Amino acid sequence: MVNPEQLLQTLQAEFEKHSYGENPAELYEPISYIMSLHGKRFRPLLTLLSASIYSENISAALKPAMAVEVFHNFTLMHDDIMDRAPLRRGKPTVHEKWNANTAILSGDVMLIRAYDLLLDIPKEKLRLVLERFNQTAAEVCEGQQLDMNFETRWNVTEGEYLEMIRLKTSVLLGFALELGGIIGGADEESVKLLYAAGENMGIGFQLKDDLLDVYGDPSKFGKQVGGDIIANKKTFLLIEALSKADEATKSELEKWISEPVFDAEEKINAVKAIYESLSIRSLTEQKISDYFGKGLENLRNLNIENSRKEPLLQFAQQLVEREK
């Protein structure tokens, strides 16, 4: 049985020795920098775990799995510019450490290098992988644009928000799993189930992120709890609260949203109290459970012996239970 921790170590070793280019240094150093910040690396791990269900030759999926992570970090580099974010994983963002122009150009090269990492895929599978990768990449951009559109809207519906996070976050998890299946030799129906599993779990993952931002343990979450409340970010929790509040409660919530000067702790506590009065936490937890439940069911429906899919199922369960 494959060991996810060992796979993660193998991935890390490959990333550490991988070269994205050298000259000019100003172009390539930012790439090495953002990739050195690591992150959770669970997307490429999903690719390797998926491939391991159908093949003993996991090494064939190693570079394609890295492509998923390089693409993910490319999107983060550009997202940080658009969000004017000063920090990424507790360190200065690329556009802060260098400048926006450098971050744009280095990000562009990362996308190209992601394609390079897909080139070892056998010819008979390469066209399908590239078609699916291109579709995924376009959808991630669509999700980012919707997210930016929502910044100026206060009538975003639950359905619109779920579609936005499906595009921005979960389609890449779906691709990570289907990529492993394609490389490992899964049949077409299994590849579809793997994609659906990633898509459903990806939505659950983002909803869990929304929840942890409000209710997470500060010592485990890794960033400021309540940051979304301070920034008036349109998360699932805020959208549901605005939708379900009566006039008086909605007026109070809107007061905090529109207040230009405020005490951060006071605002966080006041908005959390509104969430509690509307049972927003339990509603969000139920929605998270629904999506992760669908994803796990997709994996259980794979037509292969349970022992082969057990490592992936166990890792998926860890995503459900994460506290950071």
Rank of each mutant, 00 (worst) to 15 (best):
M77F: 10
D80C: 03
E5Y: 09
A197C: 11
D187Y: 12
T152K: 14
N73F: 10
E240V: 06
E160R: 12
L193H: 07
T152A: 15
T169S: 14
N200M: 04
L207I: 02
R308P: 00
E131S: 07
Y291K: 10
P24Q: 02
S277K: 15
R132S: 07
L194G: 07
L37G: 06
V129Y: 01
Y54M: 12
Q135F: 12
L76Q: 09
S258H: 10
A25V: 15
F292E: 10
F292H: 05
K125S: 08
C141D: 04
T284C: 09
E26W: 15
E310A: 13
Q12F: 10
Y215I: 00
L117S: 08
L167S: 09
E276Q: 13
L111N: 07
E69Y: 09
Y115G: 01
S307D: 14
V261K: 13
A270W: 06
L76F: 11
E189I: 15
F15A: 04
L296R: 13
A241I: 02
A231W: 06
L118M: 11
T152N: 13
T284H: 02
E151L: 05
L48W: 02
A264I: 08
K324D: 12
E323S: 11
M82V: 07
G174W: 01
Y28R: 09
A248N: 14
K234T: 01
K208R: 15
N73G: 03
L46N: 07
L242F: 11
S219H: 13
C141M: 10
E266A: 12
A245R: 00
V156S: 07
T235L: 02
A316R: 01
N3T: 05
Q135A: 14
G143W: 07
I112L: 15
W154S: 14
G180Q: 08
E310T: 15
G181T: 06
R322H: 01
L162N: 05
L7Y: 10
P24S: 01
K208H: 09
D209H: 02
D79I: 02
F15Q: 09
R308Y: 11
A196G: 03
N269K: 14
T235Y: 04
Y291T: 04
M148V: 13
